[in-house]
């Protein structure tokens, strides 16, 4: 339903949305660890220090109808500015201040000349880890898929 309503966005926005989502979903501490390992971190100034809060998650009645408030989730957000003036925003599920900082820093770096390095050292491994985690779960679910056999009925 949303696919049909989704606005057309420029490709660079779509790319940014994709990696910001990846950072938000990543296992706690992974993005910060990969960034540190690659030595890509840069000094920055805070625009908004990491802040823990909630987001009200909504659903739709009947799965497709009117929105309703399902319940909240914890989210941590941060915003920062590199020395060159590039601004990065981070939003991650849960209550990890270092996680939000790493997400914001990666967002900023992805808008600079270091984007390719960050992509290779941080985003690609995160993507691979997520794909492995998801497919492991999907494969276990697939193993519990019911195969029905039609039985021959006595009266036939």
């Amino acid at each position: 339903m949303a696919a049909t309503l989704a606005p057309e966005r420029p490709p660079e926005t779509e790319a940014r949305r994709a990696y910001m989502g990846l950072l938000a979903r990543a296992a706690e501490g992974r993005a910060a660890a990969l960034l540190a390992e690659a030595g890509l971190a840069q000094p920055f100034d805070w625009l908004r220090r990491p802040e823990i809060g909630t987001v009200m998650v909504r659903g739709r009645a009947g799965g497709t109808g009117a929105p309703f408030n399902l319940g909240e989730m914890t989210v941590t957000r941060a915003a920062l500015k590199l020395a060159c003036g590039t601004v990065g925003h981070g939003h991650v599920a849960g209550r990890s201040r270092p996680g939000a900082e790493a997400a914001a820093l990666i967002d900023a770096l992805m808008q600079t000349g270091r984007a390719e390095e960050v992509e290779a050292a941080v985003l690609a491994p995160l993507r691979a880890e997520e794909a492995a985690r998801k497919s492991a779960r999907a494969e276990k679910a697939a193993a519990t898929k019911v195969e029905f056999f039609t039985l021959v009925r006595g009266e036939d």
Binding site: M1, G53, T54, V55, M56, R58, G59, R60, R77, A138
Partner: peptide, 22 residues
């Protein structure tokens, strides 16, 4: 929960796009 600021409300979740365990 009451001690936390609320950042906003989400878009309604798309349950038809769920990665189903069950």
């Amino acid at each position: 929960r009451t001690t936390l600021p609320r950042f906003g409300a989400s878009e309604p979740v798309e349950t038809s796009e769920m990665a189903c365990d069950r």
